[in-house]
């Protein structure tokens, strides 16, 4: 195959306020701000990454955390190469929601091989109160990840830039792995400059 897809689509999911936007911005722009607004709908940033001697572009989709937006996410979820699940180690509920986020993603994105679709879990905000306010233990989180097919797990702090690069490196790697496995489906899909069938409405959202 001559045409290699080098764009990786990564979706960040998780409850509202767990730090999805902060993580993305820390990774892409190396910046942290206390002044982020709530994300409405979705937003994305791209970053070039080197993965095993291969240069790829990561397109990172940051989504709204409110449940209301879940059902509207189909358009964003589709075609994802990796899904990042984020929770706040200081809030139990955000961890409990991971199940729901994962299930919802699998339903809406309907990847070809749901069993092996690459997820990565990030426990964010480990810096808060020097870790004294944390309520979800690393052990508990790892147990959950293990039960879902050995999902890689990272403890991060977007604020302190702790583990963020590592996590995204892993994300890129897994996304790329997934992408190559799916490459066989590409020929049907690549039709950028050619004639598009005239659909009455191209927007599916």
């Amino acid at each position: 195959m001559s045409r290699k897809r080098t764009l990786l689509k990564v979706i960040i999911l998780g409850d509202s306020g767990v730090g999805k936007t902060s993580l993305m911005n820390q990774y892409v722009n190396k910046k942290f701000s206390n002044q982020y607004k709530a994300t409405i709908g979705a937003d994305f940033l791209t970053k070039e990454v080197q993965v095993d001697d291969k240069l790829v572009t990561m397109q990172i989709w940051d989504t709204a955390g409110q449940e209301r937006f879940q059902s509207l996410g189909v358009a964003f979820y589709r075609g994802a190469d990796c899904c990042v699940l984020v929770y706040d180690v200081n809030v139990n509920k955000t961890f409990d929601s991971l199940d729901n986020w994962r299930d919802e993603f699998l339903i809406q994105a309907s990847p070809s091989d749901p069993e092996n679709f690459p997820f990565v879990v990030l426990g964010n905000k480990v810096d808060v109160d020097m870790g004294h306010s944390r309520v979800v233990s690393e052990k508990k989180a790892k147990a959950w990840c293990a039960s879902k097919g050995n999902i890689p797990y990272f403890e991060t702090s977007a604020k302190e830039d702790l583990n963020v690069d590592n996590a995204f490196q892993c994300i890129a790697k897994n996304a790329l792995k997934n992408e190559t496995e799916e490459e066989i489906y590409l020929p049907d899909l690549v039709d950028v400059n050619g004639q598009r069938p005239q659909k009455s409405s191209a927007c599916e959202c």
Binding site: R5, T6, L7, L8, K9, Q59, A75, R78, G79, A80, D81, L186, L189, V190, V192, A202, C203
Partner: peptide, 14 residues
């Protein structure tokens, strides 16, 4: 513009 946005939405198939 519409084409551009439509295209961006399907960017993963670039």
């Amino acid at each position: 513009l519409w084409r551009h946005l439509d295209h961006t939405n399907k960017a993963s198939y670039l």
